[in-house]
Design a protein around this nucleic acid. Structure first.
Lengths: 342, 342
DNA sequence: CAGCGCTCAGAAAACGTTTTCTTGCTGAGA
DNA sequence: TCTCAGCAAGAAAACGTTTTCTGAGCGCTG
């Protein structure tokens, strides 16, 4: 078995209180004693038993990351950022695939109450009163990642979706496109779809490009749904020159549909995505898209959470992460004559 | 604060021993008492404090999944399977991005000794004596996922790489290909690369197709490395009609190179991958590949681990997961005349 | 020189379980 | 009727910390 604080105390000929103090508040113990204890600790390879400390002061050194699906590389990337900062703080991360499922969520929450996790990063879905109530009951710091929290007074880390979407749309307009269709996420998922829709619409209007519900279709934010959504959009807008999809997965699904219709990207139709997933650069041509620095979102969320853990009554400030247009090969510049003649 | 076992005991007018027994060994307590206690438990929403139980019997109800990189969808998928069975056993999973880094590995291992995790699933790299020694020191059940363990007497869950690779190569041969290049993973990573190489070579030989080192290039198993490896392979084998890559990421990288060279897939060159990543079906044309049921690997590894946790001295039997050829659009059948005339 | 306060270290309580040991009671067999 | 076995429930110890309380020793001040 591992050495305990008693073993160290006996070996160093001090009391266990002294050993504990050496660990937690070294300045409060005299130099010679401290050094003797330190040496024995080293010698025996002593480390405090986390169960005992946990029992004593209800800290588990564990945080929880709640995400919809770890198989989605967006969340995997985010998790990677969270994990990085947790490791540096000597915390562990436990992951929860909520699968957008309230029952499963509850299952986990019930669990955390017992486990006394020290903090929670939530990246799953729209926050409803249901979630908010459960968070409150948990009574630990909560940080939202890539989802909205202002209405519920929860700190969040995310990109400015309105602005990012505005920039993406403007990019298409600046490349000479006017007939720009928009594949939105499902409208019932408020975040981030309202924001991305708003950014798209605002950009169109600001540049005097006509826009209406005729330009928009709604779908789940997946590859398959994007494929299917593109067929609907194409039926509504047979003359579109560009498609802007609210996620890369949808954009790539849309590209597959266009490809099957014999429409070349970007010669006949330009495509713009959102997310900058790893795979966006793997396809040919590479997908032009809006990059969220997802890793950074995870990292910031982690840092924010630890702020809250280390200083329980501090108010946490939401953070906005910068976005960036990544230009690859799926948008054609219609303003270049040579290009349009190709 | 949460109700304790004492609260329950007082409320139900029994001793705490009885309450504990109701939880852990219900049959040993009389019916009426049991029911009274059960009711109070329900009423108060009591649940045992895991620190206290952990302190008492050194069980954490936590298992660890060690993987190279959660951002790699292969491992994300595997993790998803692990997580599923852990949840059903009411265990938590903590993840460790080892990043193929021994120092980082040690950092984690040191941690687990303290945390007293109950089991470990290792999916990182080739097992060396270094790892094996650390596993032994941990003194908990260890299961290997998608890596080899026989030499070290560790149970593993994986596909039969030799057979799978044999099948993939045979598929290409049966489609009329003879000049088949092979993009292997780096030779220093023995598993699974020796096996896949062996399967390829064996299939070629069994079908009387000439094969030599001229047909093979080595690269890291990533998209970028696959791109670069394809350029080397193409230089060595300008007349190849098919490429078989030991991972989908490499295969897709290779496709990008071919595309840039003006070579169409599958018209000029056929491509076959290995893994069946999510993104393999997203590209156009869809990648023909060998499917590992990765989720199943994770799930089986989890189940095997829990066998070991629940029965410590049982010998765990390694498990082989079935593989399958997924036919999509990147392999042309050269035996069909109409096809070759297109 | 006496008394006061301050510093540093030890004693002990508390955290919430699980499980062994003990005890009291019931029922059966002699 | 007495004794012994068996069973059900309670008492108590143990797991390893952290922290508050206590007390000893010492230096400074009046």
């Amino acid at each position: 078995m591992n050495p305990t604080i008693h073993d160290v105390a006996k070996q160093a000929n001090v009391s266990i209180s002294t050993v504990s103090r050496v660990f937690n508040n070294p300045d409060s113990v005299g130099k010679e004693m401290r050094e003797r204890v330190l040496q024995v600790i080293e010698e025996l390879g002593y480390a405090p038993n986390p169960f005992a400390s946990g029992l004593r002061d209800n800290r588990s050194m564990v945080i929880v990351a709640m995400i919809p699906d770890i198989r989605n590389s967006y969340y995997a990337e985010m998790l990677s950022g969270i994990e990085e900062v947790a490791l540096s703080k000597r915390y562990n991360v436990i992951i929860c695939n909520t699968i957008q499922n309230e029952e499963r969520f509850l299952e986990y929450v019930k669990y955390f109450v017992k486990k006394k996790v020290d903090g929670l990063i939530f990246a799953s879905t729209e926050i409803t009163e249901f979630y908010k109530k459960n968070f409150d009951a948990l009574n630990i710091p909560v940080v939202l990642a890539s989802t909205e929290g202002r209405a519920w007074d929860l700190p969040s880390v995310r990109v400015d979706d309105v602005q990012a979407s505005y920039d993406a749309t403007t990019f298409l307009i600046n490349n000479g496109h006017q007939e720009i269709g928009f594949i939105s996420g499902p409208s019932h998922l408020l975040v981030p779809n309202v924001q991305r829709y708003e950014g798209y619409r605002k950009a169109m209007q600001d540049h005097q490009v006509p826009v209406s519900e005729q330009h928009v279709v709604y779908a789940e934010m997946t590859f398959d749904a994007g494929y299917e959504a593109m067929s609907r959009l194409y039926a509504k807008m047979p003359h579109l020159t560009a498609v802007y999809a609210a996620s890369d997965a949808m954009a790539i699904g849309a590209m597959k549909f266009l490809h099957e219709q014999g429409l070349e990207v970007p010669r006949h139709v330009s495509v713009m995505g959102f997310d900058n997933l790893e795979l966006s650069r793997m396809i040919s041509p590479g997908l032009t898209t809006v990059a969220q620095n997802i890793y950074e979102i995870g990292k910031s969320a982690g840092e924010l959470l630890f702020q809250g853990i280390e200083n329980r009554d501090q108010d946490l400030q939401s953070v906005t992460i910068a976005h960036e247009i990544i230009v690859r090969g799926t948008v054609r510049n219609r303003r270049l004559k040579s290009d349009s003649e190709r």
